[in-house]
């Protein structure tokens, strides 16, 4: 019997990965220092499986590594040209679906969408840009919401519901009209129960939910994904815990 058929391990691209029962493939991989691209996963929140970046092939079948349980002896294909090509297409879909303009975005360098695109060498969004008209909500004293950059990962929805216990955000609409709505009588962020300390404020993987008055406090070039590509920051991805307080915000407060 090979090592990978051990009762407490499986393999990713031929590499042996130990796991503890109850771990998903993605959790076990990250704990073992193996990178699987992902956007809608966060270690503090329940698996969701919507971005589909982490799709791997498990014993010949496609599945989301973030929702599929690790099982003894399974063989997982992850870092292959076929899967990475598909992932690049998914990123291109996300880029054309919203309005993602990195040069003017304070999240640049800390943005997971951008970091994934760099890592998978996405040079252009390829498809026809939708240039959707989406709202920006600046009514909250400490936080602003720019839905142009939203990728519908529902991390804010889940963090607000499951960690903050507030249900400030919800995904509304259907299909391409899906959009985040704010829970307040007016639908405005300023009238909601959101506070700057909420996990929901700090969990956005892109620049859709941003803390006010911290613009460019950390210079471009010194940000999370500037030094090393995201694929070489597995420890960070596995261990980050909410709140991911922006450096400048800690200084200010």
């Amino acid at each position: 019997m090979s090592e990978t058929s051990n009762a407490n391990s499986f393999s990713i691209d031929g590499q042996r990965i130990p796991f503890t029962p109850g771990q998903t493939i993605l959790q076990a991989a990250l704990a073992a220092g193996v990178y699987i691209p992902h956007l809608c996963h966060h270690p503090d929140l329940k698996p969701h499986g919507s971005c589909k970046l982490c799709t791997v092939i498990v014993n010949g079948r496609n599945g989301s590594a973030c929702t599929q349980m690790a099982m003894p002896g399974i063989e997982v294909e992850n870092n292959s040209p076929t899967l990475n090509d598909r992932r690049r297409v998914l990123l291109q879909m996300l880029f054309v679906e919203g309005n993602h303009f990195c040069p003017g975005c304070e999240k640049s360098g800390n943005c997971q969408l951008q970091a994934l695109a760099y890592d998978l060498e996405m040079l252009a969004p390829h498809f026809r840009h939708a240039y959707p008209v989406r709202p920006i909500d600046t009514t909250h004293p400490d936080v602003w919401l720019d839905l142009n950059r939203c990728i519908m990962c529902e991390l804010c929805v889940r963090a607000s519901r499951d960690i903050d216990g507030k249900n400030v955000f919800a995904l509304a609409g259907r299909g391409v009209d899906s959009h985040i709505v704010v829970n307040s009588p007016s639908g405005r962020l300023g009238d909601s129960a959101l506070s700057i300390d909420d996990a929901a404020v700090h969990v956005c993987p892109v620049g859709a939910i941003m803390v006010k008055r911290v613009g460019y406090a950390v210079p471009i070039g010194e940000r999370q994904f500037d030094e090393q590509p995201i694929s070489r920051q597995v420890d960070y991805l596995a261990a980050r815990h909410i709140p991911i307080v922006p450096v400048a915000a800690t200084e200010e407060r």
Binding site: N99, H100, F101, L123, A124, P125, H129, Y131, R134
Partner: peptide, 12 residues
């Protein structure tokens, strides 16, 4: 040239 860039901020 790749995605319209900052001038495309007028697109909405």
């Amino acid at each position: 040239a790749v995605n319209g860039g900052l001038p495309a901020q007028r697109n909405h």
